[in-house]
C-alpha cells in the first residue's frame, strides 16, 4: 500500500498525472488515495519530486 508523507507532500499533482487508475485526488491541503482503485503500480512513488510517497512497511527505522 502506498502512503503519502504529508509533511513532505507539496500537493503538486505530479503523482496523479502518472496514475493509470486515476485514483489520486489533490485537495487544497491534502491528498486522497482511493485504495479500492489503486493498482499498486508505484508510478506515484517513483515520480514524486519530493520523495513523499512510499510503500508502507518499507520505512527504514533509523536508530
Amino acid at each position: 500500500m502506498v502512503v503519502v508523507n504529508e509533511s513532505l507532500c507539496d500537493l503538486c499533482g505530479t503523482c496523479a498525472g502518472v496514475c493509470p487508475a486515476n485514483c489520486i485526488k489533490i485537495l487544497e491541503t491534502k491528498v486522497l488515495i482511493d485504495y479500492n482503485q489503486c493498482v499498486e503500480c508505484l508510478n506515484c512513488a517513483a515520480i514524486c519530486p519530493f520523495e513523499a510517497i512510499r510503500v508502507s512497511g518499507e520505512e527504514v527505522i533509523k536508530v
Binding site: C12, G13, T14, A16, G17, V18, C19, P20, N22, I24, K25, I26, N43, A46, I47
Partner: peptide
Amino acid sequence: DGVESRIARQVGIDTTVKL
C-alpha cells in the same frame, strides 16, 4: 485542472502520462 488532469479521465478521456 493542470498536470493531475483528473476531470478529463473521470469523464472518459485518457490523459494518463507514461512515467
